[in-house]
């Protein structure tokens, strides 16, 4: 990709919601720096002749408008404690079920409920939904509007795995964590990429490429927020609401191995884990039950470069 194309590509990746007119002055100064790819468009956006294009063509949508169990044409379930019965490789403490007590749609929301109860040898129950084999897509915009639970040991996540995971074992298949939250940090979420050489639990000491995002004067468990990515060849943008807080690309210093995200479609997962390696176990202060509410999940088609000239 030549430099010109690269710039054009980045340019149209910046949807209008990222524009912050308050930053315009600051951003103009950065406009000349090609490396400040996100910032380029802030300044250029004030130019009327520029048209910013989003991924707007829906390919998957669930508004959770029908009360009852999730639509089986869109979602499947993981049941239990993982293939190794080891808490899905993370020492998570919950037993996933598809019972109404753990997952239901009510009043326009998908509700995943983590409960403290003795069940099938586990001390907690919860649910994990996924689109594996039902909906898989490479590139595009993936977003969900959610309200998170709170309390130590809560591990809500909206994430993706490479659809070839059964033949190309993790982390080779790649993992995109659109949103993860530690329940004891109600103002902070993070996004992350796992791939060969940069994955969680790596004994060689490297970590996933991750980035935190913290709300100011607000929390993730008191209202709904949009968590999403825009994903194209050689880049993944992470955003919360109207704030783009990170772009990962193969050159990112945190991506310490091969880029695992240009090799085919991924499927989505929505789950609320309890305990595990991310935030540790619940403590006496953790309140049960806890709920993760999802207002919608929407996926948009990647529309090539959409260059407007």
């Amino acid at each position: 990709m030549n430099q010109k194309n690269k710039l054009q590509m980045k340019k149209q990746l910046i949807p209008p919601r990222y524009m912050d007119t308050n930053k315009t002055t600051f951003l103009i100064a950065k406009c000349l720096l090609l490396t400040a790819v996100f910032l380029v468009n802030f300044s250029c956006a004030v130019d009327d002749t520029q048209t910013v294009v989003n991924f707007t063509e829906l390919t998957f949508q669930d508004e959770f408008d029908v009360d009852g169990p999730p639509d089986p044409s869109k979602w499947t379930f993981d049941i239990g404690r993982g293939p190794g019965n080891d808490g899905w490789g993370n020492q998570e403490l919950q037993y996933y079920t598809d019972r109404e007590e753990n997952v239901t749609i009510n009043n326009g929301y998908l509700i995943i409920t983590a409960r403290s109860e003795s069940f099938q040898g586990a001390s907690y129950t919860s649910a994990r939904l996924l689109t594996k084999g039902v909906f898989e897509q490479q590139y595009g915009r993936f977003e969900a509007r959610m309200r998170l639970p709170y309390g130590k040991g809560m591990w809500p996540a909206f994430w993706m795995l490479g659809a070839d995971i059964d033949t190309n074992p993790w982390p080779g298949c790649g993992e995109i964590d659109i949103m993860e939250n530690k329940g004891r940090t109600p103002t902070i979420v993070s996004g992350a990429l796992h791939g060969p050489g940069y994955w969680g639990g790596n004994p060689e000491g490297s970590n996933p490429a991750s980035k935190e995002y913290e709300l100011t004067n607000d929390r993730f468990d008191t209202g709904f927020h949009i968590f999403g990515i825009e994903w194209g060849p050689q880049y993944i943008n992470l955003y919360v609401d109207d704030v783009l807080y990170k772009q990962f690309n193969p050159e990112d210093e945190a991506v310490t191995g091969p880029w695992a995200f240009d090799q085919g479609p991924f499927f989505m997962l929505l789950n609320l884990a309890v305990g595990g390696n991310f935030d540790g176990p619940p403590n006496a202060e953790t309140v049960f039950p806890q709920t993760m509410l999802v207002d919608y999940v929407r996926v948009y088609e990647y529309n090539e470069y959409n260059v407007q000239n």
Binding site: P186, L215, D218, D221, V287
Partner: peptide, 10 residues
Amino acid sequence: EKLGTVAQPR
């Protein structure tokens, strides 16, 4: 202060 981060009343 109005912190906006004091929540989950019980």
